[in-house]
Simulated assay, not measured.
Amino acid sequence: MRWLLLIVLLTGCSAFPLASSGGPQVDRVPAGTLDAATARTSLAALPLSAPGRLDGYVRDCDSDKACVFGQPWFDTDGDGCDQRSQVLARDLTAVERKPGRCSVQSGTLDDPYTASQINSVSKIQIDHVVPLAEMWRSGAATWPQERRVAAANDLRNLVAVSGKVNQSKSDKTPDEWMPPNAGYACSYGRIYVTVKAAYGLSVAPAERSALEQALTTCDTPPAT
Rank of each mutant, 00 (worst) to 15 (best):
R2A: 13
W3P: 04
L5I: 11
V8A: 10
F16C: 03
S20Y: 02
G23V: 13
Q25H: 13
Q25T: 11
D27K: 06
D27H: 10
R28G: 04
R28M: 10
R28A: 14
V29P: 10
P30Y: 07
A36R: 10
A37D: 13
A39T: 12
S42P: 02
S42R: 14
L43H: 07
A45H: 04
L46H: 12
G52N: 06
R53T: 08
L54R: 15
L54G: 14
D55T: 11
Y57E: 01
R59C: 04
D60C: 06
S63D: 10
C67I: 07
V68T: 08
G70S: 03
F74G: 00
D77C: 00
C81G: 01
C81P: 00
D82G: 00
D91V: 13
V104I: 14
L109Q: 09
Y113F: 15
Q117F: 06
Q117N: 04
H128E: 14
A133S: 15
E134K: 03
E134L: 06
W136L: 04
W136N: 09
A140I: 06
T142E: 11
W143A: 07
W143V: 07
P144L: 10
Q145T: 08
Q145L: 13
E146G: 03
V149N: 00
A152P: 11
N153D: 09
N153E: 10
R156T: 12
R156M: 14
N157S: 09
V165N: 09
N166H: 11
N166G: 13
D171E: 15
T173G: 07
M178W: 08
P179D: 02
P180Q: 02
N181M: 07
G189N: 02
R190C: 08
A198Q: 13
A206G: 02
L211W: 02
T220N: 11
T220H: 12
